[in-house]
Protein backbone atom coordinates (compact mmCIF):
# COMPACT_ATOMS: atom_id res chain seq x y z
CA UNK A 1 0.00 0.00 0.00
CA UNK A 2 2.76 2.41 0.82
CA UNK A 3 4.38 1.78 -2.56
CA UNK A 4 1.15 2.46 -4.32
CA UNK A 5 0.70 5.57 -2.31
CA UNK A 6 4.03 7.03 -3.36
CA UNK A 7 3.14 6.30 -6.94
CA UNK A 8 -0.09 8.15 -6.52
CA UNK A 9 1.50 11.13 -4.96
CA UNK A 10 4.79 11.03 -6.85
CA UNK A 11 5.82 12.89 -9.95
CA UNK A 12 3.46 12.82 -12.94
CA UNK A 13 4.53 10.50 -15.74
CA UNK A 14 4.94 12.00 -19.18
CA UNK A 15 5.35 10.42 -22.61
CA UNK A 16 8.79 11.95 -22.77
CA UNK A 17 7.93 13.94 -25.90
CA UNK A 18 8.48 17.66 -25.83
CA UNK A 19 7.27 20.23 -28.33
CA UNK A 20 8.40 23.83 -28.52
CA UNK A 21 10.85 22.98 -25.82
CA UNK A 22 8.43 22.74 -22.93
CA UNK A 23 5.07 21.35 -23.97
CA UNK A 24 4.84 17.86 -22.56
CA UNK A 25 2.22 15.17 -22.68
CA UNK A 26 0.99 13.45 -19.53
CA UNK A 27 1.03 9.71 -19.54
CA UNK A 28 -1.33 8.95 -16.70
CA UNK A 29 -2.38 5.34 -16.36
CA UNK A 30 -6.01 4.48 -16.79
CA UNK A 31 -8.10 3.42 -13.82
CA UNK A 32 -8.49 -0.32 -13.69
CA UNK A 33 -12.28 -0.23 -13.98
CA UNK A 34 -11.87 1.67 -17.24
CA UNK A 35 -9.60 -1.00 -18.60
CA UNK A 36 -12.11 -3.62 -17.57
CA UNK A 37 -14.76 -1.67 -19.36
CA UNK A 38 -12.63 -1.83 -22.49
CA UNK A 39 -12.16 -5.58 -22.17
CA UNK A 40 -15.88 -5.96 -21.55
CA UNK A 41 -16.68 -4.14 -24.77
CA UNK A 42 -14.33 -6.50 -26.64
CA UNK A 43 -16.17 -9.46 -25.13
CA UNK A 44 -19.47 -7.82 -26.06
CA UNK A 45 -18.32 -7.48 -29.67
CA UNK A 46 -17.42 -11.17 -29.84
CA UNK A 47 -20.80 -12.17 -28.38
CA UNK A 48 -22.47 -9.85 -30.86
CA UNK A 49 -20.70 -11.58 -33.75
CA UNK A 50 -22.02 -14.88 -32.52
CA UNK A 51 -25.62 -13.79 -32.04
CA UNK A 52 -26.14 -11.38 -34.95
CA UNK A 53 -25.21 -11.55 -38.64
CA UNK A 54 -21.68 -10.21 -38.69
CA UNK A 55 -18.84 -11.47 -40.85
CA UNK A 56 -18.77 -11.91 -44.61
CA UNK A 57 -17.67 -15.40 -45.53
CA UNK A 58 -17.21 -16.09 -49.22
CA UNK A 59 -20.44 -15.20 -51.00
CA UNK A 60 -22.42 -15.41 -47.78
CA UNK A 61 -22.01 -14.31 -44.22
CA UNK A 62 -22.27 -15.60 -40.69
CA UNK A 63 -25.94 -15.43 -39.81
CA UNK A 64 -25.80 -15.49 -36.06
CA UNK A 65 -26.95 -18.14 -33.65
CA UNK A 66 -29.80 -18.54 -31.14
CA UNK A 67 -31.58 -15.50 -32.55
CA UNK A 68 -34.14 -16.65 -35.06
CA UNK A 69 -37.30 -14.77 -35.88
CA UNK A 70 -40.44 -16.76 -36.52
CA UNK A 71 -43.47 -15.57 -38.45
CA UNK A 72 -46.22 -16.97 -40.60
CA UNK A 73 -46.40 -16.80 -44.38
CA UNK A 74 -49.45 -18.25 -46.11
CA UNK A 75 -50.33 -20.18 -43.02
CA UNK A 76 -46.97 -21.88 -42.77
CA UNK A 77 -44.45 -20.99 -40.12
CA UNK A 78 -41.13 -19.62 -41.27
CA UNK A 79 -37.99 -18.91 -39.35
CA UNK A 80 -35.06 -16.72 -40.38
CA UNK A 81 -31.89 -15.58 -38.70
CA UNK A 82 -32.11 -12.11 -37.22
CA UNK A 83 -32.75 -9.40 -39.80
CA UNK A 84 -34.80 -6.23 -39.94
CA UNK A 85 -37.07 -7.45 -42.73
CA UNK A 86 -38.15 -10.51 -40.77
CA UNK A 87 -38.60 -8.31 -37.73
CA UNK A 88 -40.90 -6.13 -39.78
CA UNK A 89 -42.96 -9.08 -41.04
CA UNK A 90 -43.32 -10.23 -37.46
CA UNK A 91 -44.17 -6.74 -36.24
CA UNK A 92 -46.84 -6.32 -38.90
CA UNK A 93 -48.37 -9.65 -37.88
CA UNK A 94 -48.08 -9.84 -34.13
CA UNK A 95 -46.59 -6.55 -32.92
CA UNK A 96 -48.32 -4.63 -30.15
CA UNK A 97 -49.67 -2.01 -32.54
CA UNK A 98 -50.74 -4.62 -35.07
CA UNK A 99 -52.73 -6.50 -32.45
CA UNK A 100 -54.28 -3.34 -31.10
CA UNK A 101 -55.26 -2.19 -34.59
CA UNK A 102 -56.55 -5.66 -35.43
CA UNK A 103 -58.73 -5.69 -32.35
CA UNK A 104 -60.26 -2.33 -33.26
CA UNK A 105 -60.57 -3.36 -36.90
CA UNK A 106 -62.56 -6.41 -35.91
CA UNK A 107 -64.79 -4.27 -33.78
CA UNK A 108 -65.38 -1.90 -36.68
CA UNK A 109 -65.81 -4.77 -39.15
CA UNK A 110 -68.45 -6.36 -36.93
CA UNK A 111 -70.38 -3.13 -36.40
CA UNK A 112 -72.82 -1.70 -38.89
CA UNK A 113 -72.62 1.89 -40.08
CA UNK A 114 -75.22 3.15 -37.65
CA UNK A 115 -73.29 1.71 -34.69
CA UNK A 116 -69.97 3.10 -35.88
CA UNK A 117 -71.35 6.58 -36.43
CA UNK A 118 -72.93 6.65 -32.98
CA UNK A 119 -69.84 5.51 -31.09
CA UNK A 120 -67.32 8.33 -30.45
CA UNK A 121 -64.61 5.83 -29.57
CA UNK A 122 -64.92 3.91 -32.83
CA UNK A 123 -65.24 7.16 -34.76
CA UNK A 124 -61.99 8.43 -33.25
CA UNK A 125 -60.29 5.22 -34.40
CA UNK A 126 -61.78 5.46 -37.87
CA UNK A 127 -60.72 9.07 -38.22
CA UNK A 128 -57.15 8.43 -37.17
CA UNK A 129 -56.52 5.19 -39.03
CA UNK A 130 -58.34 6.20 -42.20
CA UNK A 131 -56.54 9.49 -42.56
CA UNK A 132 -53.58 7.56 -43.97
CA UNK A 133 -55.78 5.52 -46.29
CA UNK A 134 -57.51 8.63 -47.55
CA UNK A 135 -54.19 10.42 -47.96
CA UNK A 136 -52.74 7.56 -49.96
CA UNK A 137 -55.69 6.83 -52.19
CA UNK A 138 -58.08 9.75 -52.35
CA UNK A 139 -56.25 12.94 -51.45
CA UNK A 140 -54.39 13.17 -54.73
CA UNK A 141 -57.61 14.29 -56.42
CA UNK A 142 -59.99 15.23 -53.64
CA UNK A 143 -57.39 16.99 -51.49
CA UNK A 144 -56.19 15.89 -48.07
CA UNK A 145 -59.30 17.40 -46.47
CA UNK A 146 -61.65 16.32 -49.24
CA UNK A 147 -62.29 19.79 -50.57
CA UNK A 148 -61.76 18.69 -54.16
CA UNK A 149 -60.75 20.92 -57.03
CA UNK A 150 -63.25 23.20 -58.73
CA UNK A 151 -64.01 21.97 -62.21
CA UNK A 152 -62.20 18.69 -61.78
CA UNK A 153 -62.84 16.75 -58.59
CA UNK A 154 -65.95 17.11 -56.41
CA UNK A 155 -65.85 18.48 -52.90
CA UNK A 156 -66.43 15.69 -50.37
CA UNK A 157 -66.74 18.02 -47.40
CA UNK A 158 -69.98 19.72 -48.38
CA UNK A 159 -73.49 18.33 -48.18
CA UNK A 160 -74.17 18.04 -51.88
CA UNK A 161 -73.74 14.58 -53.36
CA UNK A 162 -73.84 13.64 -57.01
CA UNK A 163 -74.11 9.93 -56.34
CA UNK A 164 -75.74 10.03 -52.95
CA UNK A 165 -74.40 10.94 -49.53
CA UNK A 166 -75.50 8.08 -47.31
CA UNK A 167 -72.71 5.80 -46.10
CA UNK A 168 -74.09 3.01 -48.28
CA UNK A 169 -74.07 5.28 -51.35
CA UNK A 170 -70.52 6.35 -50.62
CA UNK A 171 -69.44 2.75 -50.18
CA UNK A 172 -71.02 1.95 -53.51
CA UNK A 173 -69.20 4.84 -55.20
CA UNK A 174 -65.83 3.83 -53.79
CA UNK A 175 -66.31 0.17 -54.58
CA UNK A 176 -67.48 0.44 -58.16
CA UNK A 177 -66.37 3.88 -59.22
CA UNK A 178 -68.42 6.13 -61.46
CA UNK A 179 -68.27 7.82 -64.79
CA UNK A 180 -69.80 11.25 -64.71
CA UNK A 181 -70.76 12.11 -68.27
CA UNK A 182 -72.62 15.03 -69.76
CA UNK A 183 -72.52 15.49 -73.51
CA UNK A 184 -71.27 18.72 -74.98
CA UNK A 185 -73.97 20.83 -76.63
CA UNK A 186 -71.68 22.83 -78.89
CA UNK A 187 -73.28 21.38 -82.00
CA UNK A 188 -76.83 21.13 -80.65
CA UNK A 189 -77.21 24.70 -79.43
CA UNK A 190 -76.48 27.94 -81.11
CA UNK A 191 -74.60 30.46 -79.05
CA UNK A 192 -77.84 32.28 -78.33
CA UNK A 193 -79.50 29.09 -77.17
CA UNK A 194 -76.52 28.32 -74.95
CA UNK A 195 -76.95 31.73 -73.43
CA UNK A 196 -80.63 31.10 -72.76
CA UNK A 197 -80.08 27.72 -71.16
CA UNK A 198 -77.31 29.13 -69.00
CA UNK A 199 -79.59 31.88 -67.77
CA UNK A 200 -82.29 29.38 -67.00
CA UNK A 201 -79.86 27.19 -65.06
CA UNK A 202 -78.74 30.17 -63.01
CA UNK A 203 -82.33 31.12 -62.31
CA UNK A 204 -82.86 27.72 -60.71
CA UNK A 205 -80.56 28.64 -57.84
CA UNK A 206 -82.18 32.00 -57.28
CA UNK A 207 -80.06 34.26 -59.46
CA UNK A 208 -81.73 37.43 -60.74
CA UNK A 209 -81.73 37.02 -64.51
CA UNK A 210 -83.84 38.44 -67.38
CA UNK A 211 -87.16 36.61 -67.54
CA UNK A 212 -87.33 36.32 -71.35
CA UNK A 213 -84.05 34.42 -71.53
CA UNK A 214 -85.18 32.20 -68.69
CA UNK A 215 -88.39 31.38 -70.49
CA UNK A 216 -86.57 30.45 -73.70
CA UNK A 217 -83.96 28.53 -71.78
CA UNK A 218 -86.60 26.62 -69.87
CA UNK A 219 -88.11 25.47 -73.10
CA UNK A 220 -84.81 24.09 -74.31
CA UNK A 221 -84.04 22.58 -70.90
CA UNK A 222 -87.33 20.81 -70.42
CA UNK A 223 -88.09 20.21 -74.06
CA UNK A 224 -86.71 17.74 -76.57
CA UNK A 225 -84.47 20.45 -78.05
CA UNK A 226 -81.96 20.10 -75.25
CA UNK A 227 -83.32 17.20 -73.27
CA UNK A 228 -81.50 18.36 -70.20
CA UNK A 229 -84.33 17.15 -68.00
CA UNK A 230 -83.52 13.51 -68.83
CA UNK A 231 -80.76 13.66 -66.29
CA UNK A 232 -81.26 16.84 -64.33
CA UNK A 233 -85.07 16.41 -64.02
CA UNK A 234 -87.49 19.11 -65.03
CA UNK A 235 -87.09 20.81 -61.68
CA UNK A 236 -83.29 20.73 -62.05
CA UNK A 237 -82.70 18.80 -58.84
CA UNK A 238 -80.58 16.11 -60.44
CA UNK A 239 -80.72 12.35 -60.15
CA UNK A 240 -78.64 10.21 -57.90
CA UNK A 241 -78.74 7.30 -60.33
CA UNK A 242 -77.18 9.44 -63.09
CA UNK A 243 -74.82 11.37 -60.90
CA UNK A 244 -76.35 14.49 -62.38
CA UNK A 245 -75.89 17.68 -60.44
CA UNK A 246 -78.57 19.41 -58.46
CA UNK A 247 -78.77 22.78 -60.19
CA UNK A 248 -81.07 24.39 -57.65
CA UNK A 249 -78.69 24.65 -54.73
CA UNK A 250 -75.72 26.86 -54.06
CA UNK A 251 -73.05 24.31 -54.83
CA UNK A 252 -71.22 24.25 -58.11
CA UNK A 253 -68.58 21.67 -58.78
CA UNK A 254 -67.76 22.20 -62.45
CA UNK A 255 -68.83 25.67 -63.48
CA UNK A 256 -67.08 28.08 -61.15
CA UNK A 257 -70.15 30.22 -60.54
CA UNK A 258 -69.15 31.24 -57.07
CA UNK A 259 -65.72 32.40 -58.24
CA UNK A 260 -67.40 34.98 -60.49
CA UNK A 261 -68.76 38.22 -59.14
CA UNK A 262 -70.52 39.51 -62.26
CA UNK A 263 -73.50 37.83 -63.82
CA UNK A 264 -71.83 37.70 -67.24
CA UNK A 265 -68.97 35.73 -65.73
CA UNK A 266 -71.38 33.30 -64.11
CA UNK A 267 -73.25 32.87 -67.38
CA UNK A 268 -69.99 32.27 -69.24
CA UNK A 269 -68.94 29.67 -66.70
CA UNK A 270 -72.19 27.77 -67.09
CA UNK A 271 -72.14 28.14 -70.85
CA UNK A 272 -68.65 26.67 -71.07
CA UNK A 273 -69.80 23.58 -69.26
CA UNK A 274 -72.91 23.15 -71.42
CA UNK A 275 -70.90 23.69 -74.56
CA UNK A 276 -68.06 21.29 -73.73
CA UNK A 277 -69.85 18.75 -71.62
CA UNK A 278 -68.34 16.87 -68.73
CA UNK A 279 -66.39 13.66 -68.63
CA UNK A 280 -65.14 12.64 -65.23
CA UNK A 281 -64.06 9.31 -63.90
CA UNK A 282 -63.96 8.08 -60.37
CA UNK A 283 -61.95 4.86 -60.53
CA UNK A 284 -63.12 1.63 -59.01
CA UNK A 285 -61.32 0.65 -55.81
CA UNK A 286 -62.61 -2.88 -55.65
CA UNK A 287 -59.59 -5.16 -55.75
CA UNK A 288 -57.22 -2.38 -54.82
CA UNK A 289 -58.71 -1.92 -51.37
CA UNK A 290 -60.25 -4.66 -49.32
CA UNK A 291 -63.80 -4.62 -48.05
CA UNK A 292 -62.91 -3.32 -44.64
CA UNK A 293 -60.73 -0.53 -46.00
CA UNK A 294 -63.62 0.59 -48.18
CA UNK A 295 -65.88 0.47 -45.14
CA UNK A 296 -63.49 2.68 -43.20
CA UNK A 297 -63.19 5.11 -46.09
CA UNK A 298 -66.95 5.27 -46.51
CA UNK A 299 -67.38 6.31 -42.90
CA UNK A 300 -64.47 8.71 -43.15
CA UNK A 301 -65.79 10.43 -46.27
CA UNK A 302 -69.25 10.53 -44.76
CA UNK A 303 -67.78 12.32 -41.75
CA UNK A 304 -65.76 14.81 -43.79
CA UNK A 305 -68.51 17.30 -43.54
CA UNK A 306 -71.80 16.61 -45.12
CA UNK A 307 -72.74 12.96 -44.96
CA UNK A 308 -76.47 12.32 -45.09
Amino acid sequence: MSEAKTKQQGAVQTTGHAWDGDIQEFNNPLPRWWLWGFYASVVFAVLYWVIYPAWPVGKGYTTGLFNNITYTVNGEERSRHWNTRSLLVKDMQTGDEALKTKEYMQKVAAADYRQILADPDMMAFVRSVTKGLFGDNCAACHGSGGAGVMGLFPNLADDDWLWGGSVEDIQNTITLGHTGYMPGFARTFSDEQLDDVAHFVLSLSGHEVPADKVARGKQLFTGEGGGCYYCHTAAGTGMKSQGSANLTDNIWTIADVQGQTELTGKVDAVKTVIRNGVNRVMPTWQGRLDENQIKLLSVYVHELGGGQ
Partner: peptide
Amino acid sequence: EGYFAEFR
Protein backbone atom coordinates in the same frame (compact mmCIF):
# COMPACT_ATOMS: atom_id res chain seq x y z
CA GLU B 1 -44.84 -11.52 -47.33
CA GLY B 2 -41.63 -13.23 -46.30
CA TYR B 3 -39.94 -13.47 -49.70
CA PHE B 4 -37.64 -10.47 -49.44
CA ALA B 5 -36.62 -11.37 -45.91
CA GLU B 6 -34.97 -14.44 -47.43
CA PHE B 7 -32.32 -12.14 -48.87
CA ARG B 8 -31.27 -10.81 -45.46
